[in-house]
């Protein structure tokens, strides 16, 4: 874990008056807290595309990545399952057009196979301080609101209870030919999120959505970090 490195990213953004981190920055912060994230490269100019896609490999995902845009799907900024360079060039052009001059760049990231999507997050309650959330992810987060909370700090037992508390808890079991999710690894992420909340005051809210279960292993595929206004 490297709190100072995480703080550096956050302070740099705040220094520029921003109240949000880009996905790329948010994942770096998570990474410094040992939360597994996708392999990815930020492309800020067209000529960087070839090197980036070569590094990540196909199939891959391209996303518009801007600290000004909290929810990318709504802005049509995500292209998945890109299988060759022609597709990458085409997608890159479309995303750049959709970004419409917003600051940032295009993020090339590995495509994580897995059909199970979870959400994890951190929010600050006025009375109880940082609280950690777990639930069904992707589009089901808003539709079902099948979630649970705990006040930070949480221990492994709290984290396991959070996972057992949602109605859709069977999603973590070995089902339909899929392996059981690694609940220890999931618990570890929840514990770390609580730790960020306790250690870094400047972080107001975190969404990791989705966390995709790849095999049994959870990976943070998209992330949003909202900063407290200064």
């Amino acid at each position: 874990m490297n709190k100072d490195a995480a703080l550096k990213i956050i302070n740099a953004a705040r220094h520029r008056g921003r109240t949000m981190l880009s996905e790329y920055e948010a994942k770096k912060v998570l990474c410094h807290y040992d939360i597994p994230v996708t392999r990815e490269k930020l492309i800020t100019e067209r000529r960087g595309l070839e090197y980036a896609v070569h590094e990540i490999g196909y199939p891959l995902v391209l996303k518009g990545c801007s600290p000004d845009i909290a929810h990318k799907t709504e802005k049509n900024l995500i292209r998945v399952d890109i299988r060759n360079f022609d597709e990458a060039v085409h997608a890159y052009g479309e995303i750049n057009a959709a970004l419409d001059g917003a600051s940032g760049g295009v993020l090339a990231q590995e495509m994580i196979p897995g059909r199970r999507e979870l959400v994890m997050g951190m929010t600050r309650d006025d009375q109880f301080g940082p609280c950690v959330m777990f639930g069904l992810g992707g589009i089901f987060t808003e539709i079902l609101e099948d979630i649970s909370f705990r006040k930070a700090p949480i221990d492994a037992r709290d984290a396991m209870q959070m996972m057992q508390e949602i109605r859709g808890r069977k999603i973590l079991d070995a089902i339909r030919g899929m392996e059981a999710a690694d609940t220890n690894a999931l618990a570890e992420i929840l514990i770390r999120l609580g730790q960020i909340g306790l250690e870094i005051d400047a972080v107001a809210e975190i969404d990791i959505n989705p966390v995709i279960i790849s095999g049994s292993r959870p990976v943070a595929v998209d992330a949003l970090i909202v900063l407290r206004p200064q």
Binding site: M20, V119, G121, T123, M133, F149, D207, L224
Partner: peptide, 16 residues
Amino acid sequence: LSHTASMGGSARIWEA
């Protein structure tokens, strides 16, 4: 901005 914060009203936090 986040879904986590928008769903974390007092009813859910107190329950937790």
